[in-house]
């Protein structure tokens, strides 16, 4: 407290001595500065409050995952009294539980790879060329992003059953392409439009063929864009449940669907549910940690 107030006076006195040199401008400058400092302090406080409110429900879940069921039901407490890892042990000791995580990860990664592979050339085409029906095609793609998964539930089930893909990871990955591919094209197109066309032309003059140019020069240029796209594909595929649950039964069942098992005749197993929930948050946090430096840029979808 005292320390901060001394730095405060130091700074304002510094502004004052500076002010004697330029008599007219100085007091205005220092007032504006003080105002700005107050504003920063206020916004910092606001941010802390927002973050606390944001993280409280998640903290509550984590807190619960370390409690036993009797403790959960016996009353509220901010810290587990009888700290236990039983809930986690149950998940890691049972293949029907932990296979859910593996299944989810598998189809999410597959979806990410497929989406990126097909979206990269298409986004290049949209950002560089005019062709018959390009605008309609773009809107049509986006319209798929708008399609409610509930609409496609039944047809998807029948389609994938009839081609023998039901209950495989690739089925879920392909189904998620419905909304991830349009999104990937959209984001990548934004990033690619930010790369000057002169680069393409120079490369062609230098004798690069299109594939060579694309892989050697262009892709490294939009690296961060690809990272961000991958992040978004991961995110939307990881959080989706409706399609993933409908298209799988045993072999490729995602963790989100397995979680419903905690409801049993003897009531809810809250601790186990909480632990499973906490474990679904971790992969997302890892991914966002890796792209944290690009994510601000990426959320602008390269379009600002």
């Amino acid at each position: 407290m005292t320390q901060s107030s001394t730095t405060h006076t130091n700074k304002s006195s510094a502004a004052k001595t500076y002010g004697t040199a330029e008599t007219v401008q100085a007091p205005v400058y220092s007032r504006a500065e003080r105002k700005a400092r107050n504003a920063t302090r206020r916004s910092r406080l606001g941010m802390v409050i927002y973050l606390v409110l944001l993280l409280l429900p998640i903290y509550w879940l984590i807190n619960m995952s370390f409690k036993t069921n009797t403790e959960i039901l016996s009353g509220l407490s901010f810290f587990p009294e009888h700290f236990t890892l039983d809930n986690y042990a149950k998940i890691f000791g049972d293949p029907t539980w932990y296979m859910g995580y593996i299944n989810s990860t598998l189809y999410v990664v597959m979806n990410m790879v497929i989406s990126l592979l097909v979206a990269l050339p298409a986004a290049y085409a949209f950002s560089r060329y005019r062709f018959v029906g390009d605008k309609h095609m773009f809107f049509w793609l986006l319209s798929n992003r708008m399609a409610p998964p509930a609409v496609f539930l039944l047809p998807f089930f029948q389609l994938y059953s009839s081609v023998g893909l039901f209950d495989t990871h690739i089925a879920v990955a392909l189904a998620h392409c419905l909304f991830n591919v349009p999104l990937a094209v959209w984001i990548l197109e934004g990033f690619m439009s930010g790369v000057p066309r002169e680069i393409d032309e120079t490369a062609y003059i230098d004798g690069y063929t299109f594939p060579k140019f694309f892989v050697r020069i262009f892709i490294p240029l939009i690296r961060s864009g690809i990272g961000v796209t991958a992040f978004f594909c991961f995110m939307f595929s990881w959080v989706e449940l409706l399609l993933a649950r409908t298209l799988t039964s045993v072999e490729a069942k995602p963790i989100a669907a397995i979680m419903t098992r905690t409801v049993s005749a003897s009531g809810m197993d809250w601790g186990l549910l909480a632990a499973a929930g906490v474990l679904t948050i971790i992969p997302g946090m890892l991914v966002i940690y890796f792209v944290r430096n690009h994510v601000a840029k990426g959320f602008a979808l390269g379009r600002v």
Binding site: L54, A256, I288
Partner: peptide, 14 residues
């Protein structure tokens, strides 16, 4: 950034 983004990465049923 990381903290704010957390809710986005939680599966919807969770």
């Amino acid at each position: 950034l990381i903290l704010v983004a957390i809710p986005l990465l939680i599966p919807w049923n969770v």
